[in-house]
Design a protein around this nucleic acid. Sequence first.
DNA 1: AAACTTTATTTGCCATGCCTAATAACCAGA
DNA 2: TCTGGTTATTAGGCATGGCAAATAAAGTTT
Lengths: 164, 164
Amino acid sequence: MKKERGFYTVRGYQMLNAENKTLTSSMEDYLEMICRTCREEGYVRVNQLAEMLNVRPSSTTKVIQKLNALGLVDYQKYGIIQPTEEGKAIGDFLLKRHEIIEEFLGILGIEETRLKDTEMIEHDVSLNTLKSIYVLNKFLSENPDIIKRYETFRKRYNVDDVIL
Amino acid sequence: MKKERGFYTVRGYQMLNAENKTLTSSMEDYLEMICRTCREEGYVRVNQLAEMLNVRPSSTTKVIQKLNALGLVDYQKYGIIQPTEEGKAIGDFLLKRHEIIEEFLGILGIEETRLKDTEMIEHDVSLNTLKSIYVLNKFLSENPDIIKRYETFRKRYNVDDVIL
DNA sequence: AAACTTTATTTGCCATGCCTAATAACCAGA
DNA sequence: TCTGGTTATTAGGCATGGCAAATAAAGTTT
């Protein structure tokens, strides 16, 4: 009988993470959106955030309070929301991560589901893998000939008809 | 004020999925492992599965009962677990998906976190994106010259030192 | 077959993250 | 200032997916 140590359920990994006091996926989503908006408009409000995330304001309040307790956003009841310095630093990383994944999917030729896939995948990529994807993006955009070859290949292969 | 429809939290997407009656990530993890094991040994038992997934037997029982109710596994109390035809079909897809992601990460040069990243990402990739990654893998393995170039690039770039 | 061991299930608990409905605070215009 | 409308918070509820402890079933030994 082999003692299997490798596999975990998704939830299992999440719980491991929780011990390391990293943010939950949900918190990441909120913080990311807060930073995205504040970059453009200086601050966000609960309702606005809720609408952007397709979530109810009551859910938003709860998460904001947690982020506040973690010192990642400045905010008081009924007030505006802004990231702290630390929150901004993390948010910048989250936005960068988002961009990297999205760029990669773009190169891959994914159009319709790109945003959705990005949002799902971004939470799950280790820093390690993220860096590798970043480098891959760089590699490919510096070598358009390869992208050309890939696109030809992709067309000839007819992705949509691939059966797995 | 823009009516933003695009963004969702991860949980939001999961709930959309739930309406379409797809499996939860957790159920996918279990079914995948059930199929993996049954391929080799013909059947699994609760404790074995629990150990392989690093989870308690009591948690396992619960999920198995759900999978059973969905008609994806054959099983009765205190008995052995085997996928039904439908369960096997889904499981085959899940295993294939796992392989595709893992192969991609392998090509990317990810070693330490490969299994973990695969397990996290696999649940979140649309069929669309999966197929594209599949084709990318094919493309790269049929063009070892490109992989060579990428590896050189990667080394020169020194992935580990990348600052995002 | 009785006793013991292994295996699995049940029960009851916890946190997350969403929801709705009720309530509270804030802000303008009359 | 008070009063209506907007904005935000609280309270209470639900499902998922973990856990531990108690219980039950099955299997093995003597």
